[in-house]
């Protein structure tokens, strides 16, 4: 895996790496992908019906309004103001 691919994946993953770390990560990811490539040796086809047929769906809940977690609790682990999450200004 080359550095360009790692940069592309980092971008998709919302991560950033220093130049030094990027090289090391590219090397490690190359070895990891080599291991993952063993799945290419076998000829198997995925049957989506089998999995979805097996999925256990509990009874659906009644669609009704019930008390939820209070806002103060929801923002208790965040930088907040007036019970709202605070983010950098995104609209000029």
């Amino acid at each position: 895996m080359d550095m360009e691919m790692v940069k592309y994946l980092a971008d998709l993953s919302k991560l950033e790496f220093s130049d030094e770390k990027l090289g090391e990560t590219a090397q490690q990811m190359t070895s990891i992908i080599e291991l993952m490539d063993t799945v290419k040796e076998i000829d198997v086809t995925y049957d989506a019906y089998k999995d979805n047929h097996d999925v256990f769906l509990p009874e659906l809940r009644t669609d009704s309004v019930i008390p939820s977690m209070e806002t103060a609790k929801i923002v208790s682990n965040a930088k907040s103001s007036d019970n709202c999450f605070v983010v950098p200004k995104v609209v000029e």
Binding site: M5, V6, L9, T25, M29, V39, K40
Partner: peptide, 25 residues
């Protein structure tokens, strides 16, 4: 971070069938 990169790699366009769908099979 490595695992996030691997996950997004195998879900990416062009790699999904070869890796993720194969793993499902």
């Amino acid at each position: 971070k490595r695992r996030i990169l691997l996950g997004n790699y195998c879900l990416s366009s062009g790699y999904y069938d070869a890796y993720y769908r194969k793993a499902l099979a």
